[in-house]
Design a binder for these strands. Structure first.
Lengths: 131, 131
DNA sequence: TATGGGGCTTCCCGTGACTGGAAGGTCAAG
DNA sequence: CTTGACCTTCCAGTCACGGGAAGCCCCATA
């Protein structure tokens, strides 16, 4: 399988797959002509990485997850800890964004949005919030 | 006011303030010795930027917001449009993170988290989800 | 056999918004 | 005079790629 086909099957851009090889996430074989030659195992790994990335895991998380995946003597506790930490990060990020959303939505709602210059959004950004 | 003081008052790292000057967000005066010399207006601008950044606006958004802030003939509709677009982006990001959270929480909940290798998290990442 | 058009390769630069660190000038206190 | 805190500039790195150039390789068609 050449890169374009494995890219289509894994749902990843070819560029991304070359990048994953560069950083050592995958090690596809090479044909005589120098082309990368992907087998079923490579495809499987790439799909795995793609799904992990889709859940927001970092590349280093993916590396660790792959290592655990390939370690038949792993403890599921290790996987759970990794995923749990990531879940916590996601929840923190959601909370942060929701706080932004609340503030911003309040400002936007207060703004007339007409052709006059008075604007509670700019006032809100301008004021120190201590008064 | 030297950079350290304005940094403390604006609640931004000095490095960040130098960066903001480099990209043209602010133009502090210079003392004879070459040190940046910040006035009240600079501090006010930096605090404005800091708050906008805190609400998740990009630097380019901040540039536009500052321009609107300093334009006495602005239309509040322009500000509202900018903020509204940002609000939409935030909401989309929250939805994306919540989808991740749901999937991930399901996997984590299904994982025993003991010393055995069986792990629904790894299985979930490994499977194509079509079955 | 020429040629055209994909596909493949490597390499380098750019992204956003900083952050860290090195090398060196300046200033006030002891 | 020295020490140490502060300031300056410049360069490199972050994260996870994406764009694009320059140059092979391969196959089909005329």
């Amino acid at each position: 399988m050449n890169i374009k086909e494995v890219a289509a099957r894994a749902g990843l851009p070819a560029k991304t797959i070359r990048y994953y090889e560069e950083i050592g996430l995958i090690r596809p074989a090479r044909s005589e002509n120098g082309y990368r030659s992907f087998g079923a195992a490579d495809l499987h790994k790439l799909a795995f990485i793609g799904r992990a990335r889709g859940l927001g895991f970092t590349i280093e998380d993916c590396r660790a997850l792959l290592a655990l995946y390939e370690d038949r003597e792993r403890a599921s506790a290790d996987v759970k800890a990794l995923a749990g930490a990531h879940l916590t990060r996601i929840e923190a990020k959601i909370a942060e964004l929701q706080a932004m959303k609340r503030t911003l939505a309040g400002l936007v709602a207060a703004c007339a949005g007409d052709d006059r210059p008075d604007c509670p959004i700019l006032s809100g950004l301008s004021e120190s919030g201590c008064d």
